[in-house]
Simulated scan of single mutants.
Amino acid sequence: MRFNLLGQFEIVTRDGRPYFLSRSKVSQLLGLLLLLNGETVSADTMIQELWGENVPRSALTTLQTYIYHARKIFAGLPDGEAVLVTRPTGYVIQVPDENIDVALFGHHVRQARSLLDDGSPEQALTSLDQAFELWRGPVLAGMRTGTVLAGHLTYIDELRYTATDLHVEASKRLGRYREIIPRLRLMVAENPLNESFHAQLIKALHKCGRRAEALQAYRNLWRILDVELGVEPAPELQLLQHQLLARRIVHERS
């Protein structure tokens, strides 16, 4: 049984059939337990996730009802296993990390970092490609999340940014600037205020000899920062723009 949390929450049975979970509190609870695979999650933590500051008097009883329904979900699957276990201090889901896409994503990213540190950019790219193949969309897409889950989701988003940075670095070492441009455009579109992604895109375009596009990418960043924050790009980026303009003038005169 595999658990996919990247994108819409689904369970895939051993025979490959997907079982999509509704966007209910039961699914919210399972998402938390799976993200903390192997860790015992206390009832208090679950209650905080499900109700925040508006905890009803019946919270503990209702939580136990949700656990009961979660066990029924597993029991109703062809290869359902007793993966949800009650502990004296709470509840735990314990399955191999390779059966949870989020955990597998993190493994590939950490492996890529190690390979890059060891001077193996080609192998690092292979690990990163395996990681990106798992990314079907935001974690638990469309599901309501509380404060506990929100913190874990932010961490996974940051891990994706790390994966992108590693992919860019490995590609640069191999001289493959053209290959990273589509991914950087996507990251810029998703994170318009992240100057690092803009900088990487501008540099990649420049390395590919696409100065006009690089300058346009800089103007796009300047416009976004001016409208949203009332600030200018970082000095490093302003210097890069001046270099691009100077080279364009030299090119036009030659």
Rank of each mutant, 00 (worst) to 15 (best):
V102I: 11
R144T: 13
R185W: 03
D165E: 13
H206I: 02
K203F: 11
G90Y: 02
R173P: 00
R173S: 03
A141E: 15
F105S: 06
Y91V: 12
D157I: 08
L104F: 02
P96T: 08
Y155T: 15
T126E: 13
R144L: 11
N191L: 05
L201G: 01
T164P: 00
E98H: 14
H152I: 06
E195M: 10
H167D: 13
F105D: 07
H167W: 10
G137S: 07
A189F: 04
V188W: 01
N191V: 01
L104K: 11
A150M: 09
L174K: 06
T89C: 08
P182H: 04
L116I: 05
G106S: 12
E98R: 13
F105P: 03
K172Y: 11
Y177W: 14
D118Y: 00
A141I: 00
Y91M: 11
Y177G: 08
S114N: 10
M143C: 11
E133P: 00
Q111V: 01
R185D: 09
F197K: 08
Q123H: 10
V95W: 08
I156G: 07
L134G: 06
T154S: 15
R113I: 00
V188A: 01
L193G: 05
S196G: 14
L153D: 09
I100E: 07
E179G: 06
H152R: 12
G106Y: 03
L201D: 03
L115N: 00
F105I: 03
R183M: 11
Q111M: 09
Q130Y: 06
L174T: 04
T89Q: 15
D118P: 02
D101R: 04
H198A: 09
V148M: 05
L193D: 09
A112V: 02
P192I: 05
L186Q: 14
G175Q: 07
H107L: 13
H107K: 14
T89L: 12
T164Q: 12
E98N: 12
P96N: 09
N191F: 05
V109C: 08
A199C: 09
T154Q: 15
Y161E: 14
H152F: 13
L134T: 02
G106A: 12
H198F: 08
H108T: 01
E158W: 09
L140Q: 05
Y155A: 15
T126N: 10
L104R: 13
E169A: 12
F105R: 03
N99I: 00
N99Y: 09
A112K: 01
R173L: 10
K207N: 09
G175N: 08
L116P: 04
A189G: 10
L184K: 03
V92W: 00
L116R: 00
V109F: 07
I180Q: 04
P121W: 01
R144C: 08
R160M: 12
Q200R: 11
G119L: 04
A163R: 02
A163M: 08
R176C: 05
H206W: 11
R183E: 12
N191T: 10
Q130K: 10
E179K: 06
L166R: 02
A112G: 07
V168N: 10
R173E: 10
S127R: 06
S127E: 13
D101P: 08
T89A: 15
R87S: 15
L128G: 01
G90N: 05
K172S: 10
